[in-house]
Amino acid sequence: MTEYKLVVVGAGGVGKSALTIQLIQNHFVDEYDPTIEDSYRKQVVIDGETCLLDILDTAGQEEYSAMRDQYMRTGEGFLCVFAINNTKSFEDIHHYREQIKRVKDSEDVPMVLVGNKCDLPSRTVDTKQAQDLARSYGIPFIETSAKTRQGVDDAFYTLVREIRKHKEKMSKDGKKKKKKSKTKCVIM
C-alpha cells in the first residue's frame, strides 16, 4: 500500500485542523484551538488504489514558523489553505509557496490551493482571484467548507493525484537520464 505524506499549511484560523478532522473523523470542530502540530493517518481508496494518507496539520501562528522547514522537508505534497473571508490569509499563500519551493529546492512541488469556509456569506476573496492565482502557479484550486464537508475529500484526493503525477514524471525523467548515460565512448 502506497503511503502519501501530505502537509496542510496556511495562516492561523483558516480551518486547516477543521478540514483535516472532517476528512479523518467526519465531524466539524467549530471551536478554535490553535494547533502546534498534529499528525493523522487514514486509509482510503483513490482511483481504485488503496493508500495510506499521513497528514500533518501544522501551526499557522507566526511564533511556530521555525518548525516549518522541518515538516516541509518531509512532506510530499501540500494543501495551501486560505479562508475566503480573510484576504490576508490569501496573500500569505505566496509566502508559504515560496518557502516550500526553497526548502524542497524545487520549482515543481505537488500543491493544491484550497479556499476554505465557502459556506460563509462574508467572502472577501473572489473565486476568480483564487483561480487566477492557482493557474499562475500551475496547481489545482478547490473551494471547501469544513463545516458542510463540501470539497473536503476532493481537496485531499486531488493532492494525492498531483503527487502521483509528480512521481510518474520524475521516474520518466530518471529513465531518460539513465538511457543517456548508457551511451559509451570508444577510443581507438
Rank of each mutant, 00 (worst) to 15 (best):
E49Q: 10
T58S: 10
V29W: 08
H95N: 07
K172N: 14
D108K: 03
V160Y: 03
C51M: 05
N116S: 13
T50N: 09
Y71V: 12
P34A: 08
E3Q: 06
K182Q: 08
S17P: 00
T127A: 12
R41C: 07
T158I: 03
K117A: 13
K169S: 06
E49H: 04
M67E: 13
A18L: 04
Q61G: 12
M67S: 14
L52T: 14
V45P: 07
K5C: 01
Q22E: 11
S89H: 08
E37H: 02
G48A: 04
L19M: 10
D57M: 13
L120A: 12
V9A: 04
K42T: 07
M188T: 15
E76H: 14
D33L: 08
A146V: 09
K5L: 01
S17Q: 00
G12Q: 05
A155T: 02
Y64L: 08
H95G: 03
L56M: 10
G12P: 12
T124M: 11
F141Y: 07
L79W: 00
E37R: 09
E76P: 01
T183K: 11
N26K: 09
S39V: 08
G13V: 05
P34C: 11
D132K: 07
D57G: 08
M67K: 11
K42Y: 05
D132N: 10
E98D: 08
Y71P: 10
S106K: 04
H166V: 06
F90V: 12
I139W: 04
F82K: 00
E3K: 12
R149V: 12
C51H: 06
S106L: 12
L6M: 07
K104E: 04
V45Y: 08
Y137S: 04
A155G: 03
K167V: 03
V9I: 10
K169T: 06
R41L: 06
H27V: 08
C51T: 08
G174M: 14
T144S: 07
G60M: 06
C118S: 11
T50W: 04
T35N: 05
I93T: 08
V45K: 13
A18C: 08
V186P: 15
E49N: 05
D69S: 04
H95V: 04
A134G: 03
E49W: 02
K182C: 14
G48W: 01
P140S: 15
K172E: 15
F141E: 09
T148P: 14
K167F: 03
T50V: 05
T158L: 09
E37T: 05
S39R: 10
I100C: 01
Y64M: 11
L113S: 01
I142Q: 14
L52Y: 12
R41I: 06
E91I: 02
D126V: 08
T2G: 12
V103F: 11
D126P: 04
S89E: 02
A130M: 09
D54N: 10
L79F: 06
S17L: 00
K104H: 08
E31W: 05
V44I: 05
Y96A: 03
V9R: 00
R161L: 02
D57E: 12
A59K: 08
S17H: 00
M170N: 04
